[in-house]
């Protein structure tokens, strides 16, 4: 990173973070909505832990992985919508007129989103533990969990960036949400794959990359260190990033056409 970028990127990250936390309508649901679903599902499906072969000590611990993935969805929506708004209002033009590189522009926004993702992860973990969830991997596990959250937010954030630069308006970016929602639901979100009875659902959930993310997050909560599950989760995050990074760059170059 050049000396100039070392000043520019943190300032842009700061702006991205500050503007987000100043919009309660954006932050409050990003924290409370996953927590609410967590509370409902943990209590509503508590009895599912009685199914033979259920891997976690209780359903609460099992379902606590969901908010960490939902933070990824909010990264898509938040980052995408923010960038789209910058395009719509002309703020992107203002940034384009400064000696800021294209990569600096995106890195700054991304860094702000990642910061928010880390805050979300810490809140979810704290509340989950307070509610009685197990966490078997200790302090090192917390560090890995935060790293995994960063990888997830980065990967999903790239999807948001691609959509924002491609479509240039917030509504189109929001239109992505249902698609991602489907990926989230048709996964091992609510039950582990081997406890899903319906064949079609189990097949979809088994091949759904989101299931690998769930498995990775969950491996830190119960069952002791599981390098394979972690490799799977980091691998999927890296895979999504590998697909969307070039797409995001292409969309960015098509959008910011300055000479």
């Amino acid at each position: 990173m050049s000396a100039r970028a070392r000043t520019q990127v943190p300032e842009l990250a700061r702006r991205s973070f500050v503007r987000t936390v100043r919009q309660p309508a954006q932050v409050v649901p990003a924290i409370t909505f996953p927590l609410f679903l967590f509370a409902i599902n943990a209590a509503g499906l508590d009895s599912a832990a009685e199914l033979p072969g259920f891997p976690a000590p209780d359903y609460l611990t099992f379902i606590l992985a969901v908010p960490f993935l939902q933070a990824g969805l909010f990264a898509v929506a938040g980052l995408g919508a923010d960038l789209a708004r910058d395009i719509e209002t002309g703020f992107l033009d203002r940034l384009s007129l400064t000696p800021l590189s294209r990569s600096g522009l995106v890195s700054g926004q991304m860094a702000g989103t990642i910061a928010l993702g880390v805050v979300q992860a810490v809140v979810f973990l704290t509340i989950g533990l307070a509610a009685g969830a197990s966490f078997d991997t200790g302090a090192a596990g917390v560090a890995v969990l935060i790293l995994l959250e960063i990888a997830i937010v980065f990967a999903f954030g790239l999807i948001g960036i691609t959509a924002a630069f491609r479509f240039g308006n917030g509504e189109a970016v929001q239109g992505l949400f249902p698609v991602l929602f489907i990926f989230l639901f048709l996964s091992t979100m609510a039950l582990p794959a081997d406890l899903i009875e319906q064949d079609w659902f189990r097949t979809v959930a088994t091949y759904n990359p989101v299931s690998y993310l769930f498995d990775g997050v969950r491996s830190l909560f119960y069952g002791g260190w599981d390098p394979a599950a972690l490799a799977g989760a980091f691998g999927v995050a890296a895979g999504i990033s590998a697909v969307f990074l070039p797409l995001a760059v292409r969309a960015l170059n098509a959008r910011v056409v300055r000479t």
């Binding site: 209002t89 002309g90 033009d93 000696p99």
Partner: peptide, 28 residues
């Protein structure tokens, strides 16, 4: 050059001072 393009392209959630901070930093 400096440019103020059509419609004030500002971030509604930042203050004037924060805009200045960002703009001066970006310009080095």
């Amino acid at each position: 050059i400096g440019a103020a393009l059509q419609e004030a392209a500002l971030d509604p959630f930042l203050t004037a001072r924060e805009h200045m901070r960002l703009q001066t930093a970006l310009h080095g």
